[in-house]
């Protein structure tokens, strides 16, 4: 019986010792070594694919951001700024501290109303009929940080942006077409336009007018 009891205690303590050893290997050595390699070999990606304009960081090419009108207090007014291409609706207002989705089910009455309202708003804002408004323009993404919109959503915004900035619509349309990314290796994912990159290019175009 004595050996049996000591076996039990040994097995019990082995559990604790195994956890400690594996924590050192898998929880400290592994992630820190990976961080080291990532920082040396892929520092741009590892640090969040930062986007700079005139040397100043304005965000990340991977994270969508809000293009609402900014009030005098530096806060968003919740009104889309017509000068910019607009991103998709976001459940977290493009705040990376609140990533996530709406989780609305397809029969939720609030959600149905929200989609209707958004459709009317996007159509009026861009001066297009409602049936030209694509699905991504009226639905929130999973992350609330989607950096992309569909080509169709970018195209219906061209005339409004061009008019607002006094630019030739043909040039703005060309800009959008240059910023359409196809599917990865032709088959993965979906066609898309990166809104931040498009708007940076738009700003440059406007500056050289």
């Amino acid at each position: 019986m004595a050996t049996n009891a000591s076996t039990r205690i040994r097995v019990f303590l082995a559990g604790l010792r195994a956890l400690l050893v594996l924590t050192v290997v898998l929880g400290v050595a592994y992630p820190l070594a990976m961080t080291g390699i990532a920082q040396v070999a892929f520092s741009d990606q590892a640090n969040g694919s930062k986007v700079k304009v005139d040397g100043k960081e304005v965000g990340s090419s991977l994270l969508g951001q809000s293009f609402d009108i900014v009030g005098p207090d530096g806060k968003s007014t919740g009104q889309p700024d017509p000068k910019w291409f607009q991103p998709r609706p976001s459940a977290g207002n493009y705040d990376p501290l609140a990533s996530g989705a709406s989780n609305y089910g397809p029969e939720n009455a609030d959600f149905i109303q929200l989609v209707k309202d958004r459709k009317a708003q996007v159509a009026a804002f861009n001066g297009v009929p409602e049936d030209k408004v694509p699905a991504d323009a009226v639905t929130a993404s999973g992350s609330g940080l989607d950096p992309h919109i569909s080509k169709a959503y970018a195209l219906i915004q061209v005339d409004r942006v061009a008019k607002e900035r006094g630019l030739d619509p043909a040039k703005v349309k060309k800009l959008v077409e240059d910023h359409v990314d196809g599917r990865v290796i032709g088959i993965l994912g979906d066609e898309r336009v990166n809104v931040l990159e498009l708007n940076i290019a738009l700003q440059k175009l406007a500056a050289t007018k």
């Binding site: 609305y104 959600f111 699905a135 639905t139 993404s141 999973g142 989607d146």
Partner: peptide
């Protein structure tokens, strides 16, 4: 809601 939107894109990422 998805029929009005024209696609099951709620909660999905464009890319």
């Amino acid at each position: 809601a998805l029929e009005i939107a024209g696609g099951a894109t709620e909660g999905k990422e464009q890319r």
